[in-house]
């Protein structure tokens, strides 16, 4: 770093660093703006929780997810009260908004176990805002509308949306068609629950079996 050559190199490096820092700054501000908007929609804590994990937010989300499942499992064996599940899944999805399973599971529990489908649908809305291209979230929203709020028109809309998204399975289209034609059909509900029994996690499968029994179709499952 002696003489003019070194000087010129140092100046060029410094200028490049300043330019790159400017770009980082613009990206940061954009992210901050988006986060701030999201914050107003929800609760102010989320973004700060994410920062507090110092870049390990997805691992922190996993820990919260494991804790949430443990909470559910414990209460299922005892008092069957799951009041905190919405809160836990909100934290999990604040930490890792791309983690879709907690939206689905949290909404499912709130709708089917707490009897609060509206809260479940709010969580699904949050998931779809964060992952607009995810067919599964749209499909599960349709499902909750069908079996939770019994809003069959809304269910048909979300099934249709799911079947327009990339990566959707063939049955999404089938359900979209069924829902449009046979709104309110008990067979449709059975089919939907059978799908949960086939694809859901072990807790959801148990709920599905219960529902299928209630709908008078438990013997096959």
């Amino acid at each position: 770093m002696r003489g003019w050559g070194g000087m010129v190199v140092a100046v060029v490096l410094a200028a490049a660093l300043i330019a790159l820092s400017g770009m980082v700054d613009r990206a940061d501000r954009a992210r901050r703006g988006a986060a701030a908007r999201e914050e107003l929609l929800y609760y102010p804590s989320g973004v700060w929780v994410r920062q507090a994990t110092l870049g390990y937010e997805t691992a922190a989300a996993d820990l919260a997810w494991l804790r949430g499942i443990q909470y559910y499992g414990e209460h299922r064996l005892s008092d069957q009260r799951y009041d905190m599940i919405g809160h836990v899944m909100n934290i999990v999805t604040d930490l890792d908004p791309r983690f879709t399973q907690p939206y689905v599971f949290g909404a499912f529990v709130m709708s089917q176990e707490l009897g609060q489908p509206q809260r479940g649908l709010e969580l699904m809305e949050k998931g779809m805002r964060a992952n607009p291209e995810d067919w599964k979230l749209a499909f599960e929203t349709g499902f909750l509308h069908y079996v939770g709020t019994h809003d069959h028109a809304a269910a048909a809309r979300y099934f249709a949306r799911a079947s327009a998204l990339p990566g959707h399975p063939e049955y999404a289209e089938r359900f979209a068609a069924f829902a449009a034609q046979r709104a309110g059909d008990r067979d449709m509900a059975i089919l939907l629950w059978k799908r949960v029994e086939a694809t859901g996690n072990k807790y959801m499968q148990e709920v599905a079996r219960r529902e299928l029994r209630r709908l008078g179709d438990g013997a096959e499952g």
């Binding site: 989300a61 996993d62 494991l66 499942i69």
Partner: peptide
């Protein structure tokens, strides 16, 4: 096994976070 089918994500997350930490 406790992660309700999300084991792969959990293992990957923990592995990446742990090694960087």
């Amino acid at each position: 096994p406790l992660a309700l089918g999300e084991g792969r994500k959990v293992v990957t997350d923990f592995g990446l976070a742990g090694s960087s930490l």
